[in-house]
C-alpha cells in the first residue's frame, strides 16, 4: 500500500461513516399512498383474516371471576367480557368493529399473506379471541418500563408512549394476544383515524385489546363531572358502556360488563352458564372468558 498508517485509518473511518449513513438512508418499501386507505380495504383484510383458519383454543373450565387480587384493586369495578360460544357463528363483525373503533392499521401484503395481521381480535377456530386482561398478567410482570400495567378496575392497560418496544410482553403472552407495530403504518398509508378518540400508534410499540378504554374513560369523566361537590356520590360503575365488539355482534354473543356489579348484564347473563378460558390462561385469572352450555 502506498499510503501511510494515518491516511489508512482516515480513509477507513470515512468509509465506515459513509457505510453507516448509507445504511441509514430511507429505503422506501411502499410509496406513501397520499390518500388514506379506504374502508373497503379494511373490510377486505378482515375477510382475508377470517379465511385463514387459526388453531382453535384449548378451553378449560374456570370459576366466575371475582375481585382482582392486586393491591389497591377496586372493590366496585372489575370490567370484563364473556363470549357466548353457543351463539357465536364466527361472522367476524366484531373484528371489523374493533378495527374501526381503535384505528387498527392494515398490514403490508406479504404480512397479510402469512396471516400476520394487526387485528386485536383474532378468530381462533370459530371463536373470537382477544386479550383476556388477566388479573395476574404475565405480560405486565416483564414489561421493563411499566407500559403494560393493570388498572384498579381490571383492565390490562397498554400505554403506548411509555413503550420502548422490547417485545418482552409479547414473548411472554401464552396465547399471543399482543401485536407489535413492525411497520410505520402512518408513513406507509396503512392507518386511518376513523375514531378521533383513539390515538394512532407509533412504529415500534405493542398494542392489544384495550376493552375500549376510551369509552370507559369518557363515561367515567362524564359521570364525575355531573357530581356536585359535597353531595353524597354514587360511585361510578360503568353502567351502560359497551365495547365496540359487543355492540357490533348481531347475535349479542359478546357481553361486556362489570364482574363486581350485580346489575351488570355480564353478571346476570353468566349466572347459569359454564365459563371457560384457554388452558394456558386458566391460572392467570382472566377477565375475558368464554361460555358454553348451561349449569
Amino acid at each position: 500500500m502506498g499510503m501511510d498508517r494515518r491516511e489508512f485509518i482516515k480513509s477507513c473511518s470515512l468509509v465506515a461513516v459513509m457505510g453507516l449513513l448509507f445504511g441509514c438512508r430511507k429505503i422506501p418499501l411502499e410509496e406513501l399512498a397520499g390518500d388514506l386507505p379506504s374502508l373497503k380495504r379494511f373490510e377486505d383484510e378482515v375477510k382475508l383474516a377470517l379465511s385463514q383458519a387459526k388453531k382453535s383454543l384449548d378451553l378449560v373450565k374456570i370459576p366466575t371471576p371475582g375481585a382482582l387480587k392486586i393491591p389497591g384493586a377496586s372493590t366496585l369495578n372489575r370490567f370484563g367480557m364473556a363470549i357466548d360460544l353457543d351463539s357465536c357463528d364466527g361472522c367476524g363483525k366484531c373484528i371489523l368493529a374493533c378495527n374501526l373503533e381503535n384505528n387498527v392499521p392494515l398490514v403490508p401484503n406479504e404480512d397479510a399473506a402469512r396471516g400476520r395481521f394487526m387485528h386485536w381480535v383474532d378468530m381462533r377456530g370459530s371463536a373470537p379471541f382477544m386479550c383476556a386482561h388477566c388479573g395476574n398478567a404475565p405480560c405486565e410482570r416483564v414489561c421493563p418500563t411499566g407500559a403494560a400495567n393493570h388498572t384498579p378496575d381490571g383492565l390490562s392497560a397498554m400505554m403506548y408512549k411509555r413503550c420502548t418496544g422490547s417485545r418482552f410482553c409479547g414473548a411472554n403472552c401464552p396465547v399471543q394476544a399482543r401485536k407489535f407495530n413492525f411497520n410505520d403504518a402512518q408513513k406507509l398509508g396503512l392507518a386511518r383515524q376513523f375514531n378521533r378518540e383513539v390515538p394512532l400508534r407509533d412504529k415500534g410499540v405493542m398494542e392489544k385489546c384495550s376493552l375500549c378504554l376510551h369509552r370507559l374513560q369518557n363515561d367515567r369523566l362524564k359521570f364525575k363531572t355531573s357530581l356536585t361537590v359535597g353531595e353524597t356520590a354514587e360511585e361510578w360503575r360503568g353502567r351502560g358502556v359497551k365495547t365496540a365488539c359487543a355492540e357490533a355482534c348481531p347475535k349479542n354473543a359478546i357481553i361486556f360488563g362489570n364482574w363486581l356489579d350485580e346489575k351488570s348484564p355480564l353478571v346476570k347473563l353468566t349466572k347459569n352458564r359454564v365459563l371457560y378460558a384457554p388452558r394456558e390462561l386458566a391460572d392467570l385469572d382472566p377477565s375475558v372468558v368464554f361460555m358454553r352450555g348451561r349449569r
Partner: peptide, 23 residues
C-alpha cells in the same frame, strides 16, 4: 455497519422475527 444502520432505521421488521418469537 451498513446492516446495523439499516436495522436501526427500519426497526424490528428488518430481521427475521414473527409474531410468535418476537426476538
Amino acid at each position: 455497519l451498513y446492516a446495523l444502520g439499516y436495522s436501526i432505521f427500519e426497526g424490528p421488521s428488518a430481521w427475521m422475527v414473527d409474531s410468535r418469537t418476537f426476538w
